[in-house]
Every structure is written in C-alpha cells, then in structure tokens.
C-alpha cells in the first residue's frame, strides 16, 4: 500500500498482514532488524553530514573557513555572519522570494485544481494528449526555456519585474501539479460525486465540497513540493529579475567563483537562513514523504 493521497470512502483499508510472521524466529529476526535499521541510518548519514558542515561554517570567521586542518566546531561562535545577512537590503531579497512563492502557490491552486478536475472528470476530448502536453512542459530544461521567454517579456516590457518570474515558475509548477491532481481526482469514487450531484450540487460545488476535501492530503503534499520548487528556483530568477526584484537565490549566486573574495561563513549563514523554511516544510510533510512518493505511478 503506497501512500494514501485520497481519503478512503467506504473502502476497507488494506493493511499489511502482520502478526504471524513475527512469532517465528523472533530473536533472529530482531537481530537482523537491528542490523538493517543501523544500515538504513548509515545510508541517511551522507545526506545530513554536509548540512551539518554548512551549519558549522555559518558560525566561522573568514580565517576559520580557510585554514587546514579545518575547524570542526567553531567555538568562537561568530554571529557576525548572521548579522551581516540581516540588512534591509538582503531581507528585501528574502521578501521577494516570499512574494514569488506565495503568488505561485495561489496561481497553481487557481489554475491547476479546476483543470485537473476537468481532465479527470469532464469528458474532455483528447484528455490524455492534453495531459502529456501539460506534463511535457515540466520536462523542459529551464535554461533552454528562458532564452525565448526573455525575448517575449522583453518585447512586452515585463522583464525585471516579479511578474515574469512568477509566470514562469507558475508554468513549471502548474503543469506538474495538474498532472498529479488529476490522478488524485480519479481516485475519488465516482459514486460519491454522483450522490452529491443528485443532492443538487453543481460541478464546481462538487469539486469544492466533495473532491477537494477528499483529496486534500494529496493536494497538500503536492503544494508542499510546489512551495519547495518555487522557493528554490534560480535560472528564471537569475535572468528575469531586475535591480529591485532579485530573489534570494539570485543573491546566493553572487557567492560564485568570479567573486573577488568569498566569505564562506557569510555564504553558509545565508544558505542556512534560506533553507530553514524548506526544512520546516519537509518536517511537516514527513508522513507523506516517508511513505514513499509514487506520484500515482504504482499499480
């Protein structure tokens, strides 16, 4: 049973048959359980060690970041790096990221939810081809897309505004979300919807009152991903942002090697600040993430 993205309605939940197996050879099983558990924990270690290094670097002064052997725990606990990030200007970049992400979340909901429902339920002609086209937009490399897009926004004079970044991020995420939303709506039992319609609800009300609440776990998980993707986006923002509309990822890109002096401590502090919301979202999505993401592709 993969993750349940849609609440069960009048179905038996298919739990794993447990119990019997457990009784046999319990001791041996326990030992091997412990070993595999340890192995799993070890496998997760490489994911988290570099992040701990990032955190430690955030508290180092410049010299501490540049010496060999490296300083592991910076006892000096230099907060200078963080205070140098909390300037109105750099917080302005942060605000831009917040605005872009919030707008993308709203737009994706407004555009993708009804469309996904329509594709799943409303006899749209060539629905399958449409779905393929929609998801294929998500497959395009952003840097190849942004060249044409730059030309277009430049023609209509929207370059350098947040609008252009929001539009592109919405396009990438709406295509991904529509595809997943429609797999969720397909799982909502049709009888439930038909019953609602017999009670006099229109299509739109059925969507809002029945289908969305039933698919809400799945929808929230996808929106969690949309948040992460929009928050992390760089290629569009790098090219399309203007002087006043830099997002935080563009600011992070200024710590590149063509910079004359990279203060790794400050860079790490900025990174730590910026990934904190992402880690919070990940923690909130833990149950869905840990249950495995099959994106509806499991039979």
């Amino acid at each position: 049973m993969a993750v349940t993205f849609v609440e069960e309605v009048g179905r038996s939940s298919g739990k794993h048959p447990r119990g019997g197996r457990r009784l046999r050879a319990r001791g041996r099983r326990r030992l091997s359980d412990a070993m595999f558990w340890l192995l799993a924990a070890l496998l997760a270690l490489p994911s988290v060690l570099p992040l701990l290094w990032l955190l430690s670097t955030a508290f180092k002064n410049y010299i501490e970041t540049q010496v060999v052997p490296p300083v592991v725990v910076p006892f000096s606990l230099d907060l200078e790096n963080f205070s140098s990030i909390f300037t109105p200007q750099i917080m302005g970049y942060f605000t831009n990221s917040v605005i872009v992400t919030a707008c993308v979340l709203v737009l994706v909901l407004v555009l993708a939810l009804p469309a996904a429902y329509g594709l799943a339920r409303l006899n749209v002609r060539k629905a399958k081809d449409l779905q393929f086209w929609i998801i294929s937009l998500r497959m395009l490399p952003p840097m190849a897309v942004v060249v044409p897009v730059y030309m277009m926004f430049s023609f209509i004079g929207l370059n350098g505004s947040l609008v252009s970044i929001i539009c592109m991020s919405t396009m990438m995420n709406a295509s991904f979300a529509t595809w997943l939303f429609s797999t969720f709506f397909e799982q909502v039992p049709e009888e439930t919807e038909e019953a609602a319609q017999l009670d006099g609800l229109g299509r739109f009300q059925t969507l809002v009152r029945i289908s969305i609440p039933l698919a809400r776990t799945g929808i929230l998980t996808v929106m969690g991903f949309v948040f992460v993707f929009a928050w992390n986006e760089l290629p569009f923002a790098l090219v399309l942002s203007g002087q006043l509309t830099q997002t935080f990822t563009v600011f992070l890109s200024t710590f590149t090697s063509t910079n004359a002096l990279i203060n790794y401590g400050q860079m790490a502090a900025a990174c730590v600040l910026y990934i904190t919301p992402v880690i919070v979202v990940t923690a909130l999505m833990q149950r869905q993430l840990a249950a495995g993401l099959s994106f509806g592709a499991v039979k």
Partner: peptide, 25 residues
C-alpha cells in the same frame, strides 16, 4: 539600495538592464 553581483553576472545584469531601458537602476 546597492545590489552587488559577481563579476560575470554583474556585467550580464547591467547589459540586460540597458537592453530593457530599465529605470530600476
């Protein structure tokens, strides 16, 4: 407000600002 870029990106950004006839800088 003073937006500082790295060398390559700074050049790129300034040319693009000019191309857009932007009044943001």
């Amino acid at each position: 407000t003073y937006n500082g870029y790295s060398y390559n990106d700074g050049y790129s950004k300034e040319v693009l600002l000019g191309q857009q006839k932007s009044s943001q800088a």
